[in-house]
Design a protein around this nucleic acid. Structure first.
Lengths: 147, 147
DNA sequence: GTTTGACTTAAACCATACTTGAAGTTCTAT
DNA sequence: ATAGAACTTCAAGTATGGTTTAAGTCAAAC
């Protein structure tokens, strides 16, 4: 039986994910991933850890802190590999965030292009360089990253 | 003479920018902004600090660390308000970064849509959930944020 | 059965980006 | 002239996301 291929050591997972072993242990400490243990106490990861970690990294790119990512992952079953539908429900939850973040960046880019394109006085009415008073409407900190 | 309108106290700048006074002092400590001082030692900001700080905040949204933002700002004149062209040169330097970051997020979004849209087996060939081996090609850490 | 590389924990350390607190000073309005 | 709000500095604290180190154990090949 392919028991050797069934599970990954932390080094194997690390290599495949392009992530330090310390980061995997850190994620496990924080409850974002879990592992089985050998009799000797070494970690063995089920293969779905690869998908979980990939999900974590993608979520980080979207700007989510690990604590929130954990909350999302907590919706997944603890002791069996999640189904496709379960992954998709998580993924759909990001859509608004993703859209918002993309809109923010595209907004910066376009206003940038506007400032560059249209000559001398647009700069004074440009949101990118004169948000002034605008930011003050939202709470301190926050904006889109702290969602 | 409108000396009162010419300069901003730290509290006024803070309020207009929607940013804590401690953050403004922190930026000044780090050399990202500068101020004049009253006889009594209080800060007075020239109005272009608003644009500078807005630039900083926008740059942070693009993922740049303060140290790099400082390097960009160091290209601006120290003792006069930058011209429009000077601001634009800085802004243009972000274009590639912005484009890259937008592309990354749009990529995640589209692959997400693909996974959700196309039924049961796409998940196994989806980059978002199976980057596996892919990430390992780049150095540890890095990816687009550490540019 | 022994070596060697991969693994273990726990605690300490790092960098970034700020915030908070203490103790005191300045500014502005009355 | 004085009260109170706003300001000052400096040091320490916080949160996030890890990495590093020390001292030792496990697993696999020889």
């Amino acid at each position: 039986m392919p028991e050797l291929e069934e599970y990954l050591t932390i080094g194997q997972a690390s290599e495949r994910l392009g992530l330090a072993t310390s980061a995997l242990r850190f994620y496990e400490d924080k409850g974002l991933i879990s592992s089985l243990r050998t009799v000797g106490g070494q970690r063995r990861y089920a293969r779905d850890v690869l998908r979980r970690v990939s999900f974590i990294r993608a979520a980080q790119q979207v700007g989510l802190p690990l604590a929130e990512i954990k909350e999302s992952l907590d919706a997944l079953p603890a002791h069996r590999a999640p189904t496709q539908e379960e992954w998709q429900r998580l993924a759909e939850a990001w859509r608004p965030l993703l859209d918002e973040q993309i809109a923010t960046l595209v907004g910066i880019r376009d206003r940038l292009a506007g400032c560059i394109g249209c000559g001398c006085q647009s700069l004074d009415s440009c949101d990118v360089f004169n948000p002034d008073d605008v930011a003050a409407q939202q709470g301190p900190g926050a904006h889109f990253l702290t969602l």
